[in-house]
Simulated assay, not measured.
Amino acid sequence: MTRPPLPIFDDASARIKVRLAEDAWNSRKPERVSLAYTPDSQWRNRAEISAGRNLIVEYLTRKWARELEYRLIKELWAYHGNRIAVRFAYEYRDDGGAWFRAYGNENWEFDTDGLMRRRIASINEIPKGFPEREPSA
């Protein structure tokens, strides 16, 4: 199974890869999202480390059960060879109606078939409407 665009990435193919990922995640369909990853894909998402499509599906199922009205935007940050770095922001509400916004970065590594074999995500999350702090002098 291949998942174009394939590495080695250029600007156009890296942007397409990012858009395809954004669209898949916004579908909130864990099985669909998992097909972009190798069967033994390694993930680090915040403090959770997992490997394999089955665990990806389990993780995303839990995530979207508690993150309602999830909406994600991904932006290409950098690319080189078979790797892409993105920055992202997403919003969601919990079942109590509170809204949250998360920001972060992801590093992706692909195999020759265009499947992601490694994903490292660093995410910061704040309640939406949280007052901005002035930097200390």
Rank of each mutant, 00 (worst) to 15 (best):
M1I: 13
T2D: 04
T2L: 03
P5T: 03
L6F: 04
L6D: 06
D10Y: 02
D10Q: 03
A14M: 02
R15Q: 00
I16N: 00
K17C: 03
V18P: 02
V18G: 01
V18A: 02
R19A: 10
E22C: 13
W25M: 10
S27W: 00
S27I: 01
R28L: 01
K29C: 04
E31A: 02
R32C: 03
R32I: 05
Y37M: 06
T38H: 10
S41G: 09
Q42D: 00
R44I: 12
R44L: 10
A47Y: 11
G52I: 05
G52F: 07
N54I: 07
N54T: 08
L55E: 15
L60Q: 13
L60H: 12
W64M: 09
L68P: 06
E69F: 03
Y70I: 11
L72E: 07
L72A: 07
W77H: 09
W77F: 09
A78W: 05
Y79N: 06
I84Y: 07
A85R: 15
R87I: 14
A89V: 13
R93E: 06
D95N: 11
G97E: 11
G97H: 10
G97W: 09
G97I: 12
W99Q: 12
R101I: 13
R101P: 08
Y103M: 06
Y103R: 06
G104S: 12
G104I: 12
G104F: 10
E106G: 12
W108A: 00
E109V: 09
D111W: 06
T112Q: 14
T112F: 14
T112K: 14
R118D: 14
R118Q: 15
R118K: 14
R119H: 11
I123T: 15
I123P: 08
N124R: 04
E125N: 12
G129R: 04
G129C: 03
P131A: 02
P135A: 01
